[in-house]
Design a protein around this nucleic acid. Structure first.
Length: 429
RNA sequence: GGAGAGGUGGCAGAGUGGUUGAAUGCGCUAGUCUCGAAAACUGGUUAGCCGGAAACGGCUACGAGGGUUCGAAUCCCUCCCUCUCCGCCA
């Protein structure tokens, strides 16, 4: 979330930013509720100060004066009760009005209302051409016996799947490949919980309290827990309410988790196969750093993502995401889209990774700070995240780009050490 | 799950109803000394909110939430978490 004082001082810029990002939010309400909160706080503080004075006087007071002091204090106490109740309400309203307001935007991010305004900033390889009719990943998965969608439906529901055979090895290989690369680059490997508390989700920028029709998050009945949609949530929550040592920044993590998404509102979109599913495995980068470090680190993360997909030998391009497509917490976002020959009519690019600089939008809510040397007080750290590998999407790109005319699929060289073969072939019955 | 102990500042650790937001030590930091360093000595060093240009002032916070009291880190209740022992278990 943004700082209410910042909004007050930059109200026009915040409103313009909301418009650019296609977000309808009542910015004026923030100022109204914040003013109300301040007014009540001042009143409450003053009343409490009087109360404190009375209790100081009490000891030196003569016994016959004490009854009067008690009386006065009781009255003040009643007032404080009322004021604090009102203040709590004002704080809640302030919080609620602050939640939908998106982060500010990097001045270089392309302005536009939808994906059409996204800007391609990097390309690797041309889209794969086949001298035969290419299959999509669903056909490949079925003919090579790599997943069981019917079992997924029977056991859990639609958009759940069982991975089988080499698909399992592929997933594990991708995890190894990504984590090893990142450990070599100084990232600390972490396996995070797959569940997290509601307020951590909110701090990262998710809305698990939305009503069931629009909620993107699975919640666990009778608890304040949710299934995480990404390890960004748990990695970002890991240091909440801490003051980090400036000398240790940037702190770089690579986390492995399952990710769960309800995909509410996505009904009918990307229904085939494993492109849009309710559960998948993902290796995620997460960095805590100072404001000064953040832009360079954002570029570093983008480079790492490019390196990972170059290493897999896949054609892709990278997009500088436009304002309308940024999502709430991102100040700037790059998406890496891999070529998927089976997507759409004759192949399309499909999103495989995404990296965001979230500035202090998440850390303010999660209360993660550092002490800048030479300055007094604390500042909020900046947080960045980026996908290393989202297994299902990467598997689609590999199967579709590495397919051969005979229906087999070559294994990318980088993954062969973990798969133990260089080709996935039809099983003999 | 059962029994016991405990949760205080960056860390360690005092504090059982009133100048305790918090002794002391460590750490960090500035200075003195020194050619320089170490040691020693001296000073500074919790965070948040509100008001203020600032100096500064007020309020809040000793795991969380309630309660008792004129007054709570200190007493009472509920919950959470940690540690030790026992049980169960991948």
């Amino acid at each position: 979330m943004l700082d209410a004082n910042f909004i007050r001082d930059n109200i026009d810029a915040v409103k313009a930013n909301c418009a650019n990002r296609n977000v309808k939010a009542d910015v004026d309400a923030v100022v109204t509720h914040d003013s109300e909160r301040k007014r009540l706080q001042k009143q409450s503080d003053e009343t409490k100060a009087k109360q404190n004075e009375i209790s100081k006087k009490f000891q030196s007071a003569k016994p016959e004066e004490r009854a009067a002091l008690k009386d006065e204090s009781a009255k003040l106490k009643e007032q404080v009760g009322i004021l604090d109740g009102q203040m709590k309400m004002a704080e809640d309203q302030l919080r609620i009005s602050l939640l939908p307001i998106p982060n500010m935007t990097h001045p270089d991010a392309p302005v536009g209302h939808d994906a059409a305004a996204n800007k391609v900033v990097y390309r690797h390889k041309e889209p794969t051409q086949f001298p035969f009719k290419a299959k999509d990943h669903v056909e490949l998965v079925e003919s090579l016996d790599l997943a069981d969608f019917e079992a997924g439906v029977k056991v859990t529901g639609s958009k759940f799947y069982f991975l089988k055979n080499e698909a399992v090895l592929l997933e594990l290989a991708l995890v190894q490949y990504a984590i090893q690369k990142l450990v070599a680059k100084g990232f600390t490997p972490i396996i995070t919980p797959d569940l997290a508390k509601v307020d951590v989700l909110e701090g990262i920028g998710f809305s698990p309290r939305d009503n069931a029709e629009t909620r993107q998050i699975y919640t666990i009945a009778d608890t304040d827990l949710c299934l995480i949609a990404t390890a960004e949530i748990t990695l970002g929550g890991m240091h909440r309410d801490e003051i980090l040592d400036e000398a240790k920044l940037p702190m770089k993590y690579v986390g492995l988790s399952h990710c769960f998404r309800t995909e509410a509102g996505a009904a009918g979109r990307d229904t085939r196969g494993i492109y849009r599913v309710h559960q998948f495995t993902k290796v995620e980068m997460f960095v805590y750093c100072t404001p000064e470090q953040s832009e360079a680190i954002h570029q570093d993360i983008r480079k790492i993502e490019e390196e990972i997909f170059e290493g897999l030998g896949l054609p892709f391009h990278v997009i500088d995401t436009c304002t309308g497509d940024l999502g709430g917490p991102a100040y700037r976002k790059y998406d890496l889209e891999a070529w998927m020959p089976g997507r759409g009519k004759d192949g399309e690019y499909g999103e495989v990774t995404s990296t965001s600089n979230c500035t202090d939008y998440q850390s303010r809510r999660l209360n993660i700070r550092y002490r800048p040397s030479g300055q007094k007080g604390t500042k909020f750290v900046y947080t960045l995240n980026g996908t290393a590998v989202a297994c299902t999407r990467a598997i689609i790109a590999i199967l579709e780009n590495y397919q051969q005319e005979d229906g087999s699929v070559l294994v990318p060289e980088a993954l062969r050490p973990w798969i133990g073969k260089d080709k996935i072939e039809r099983k003999s019955k």
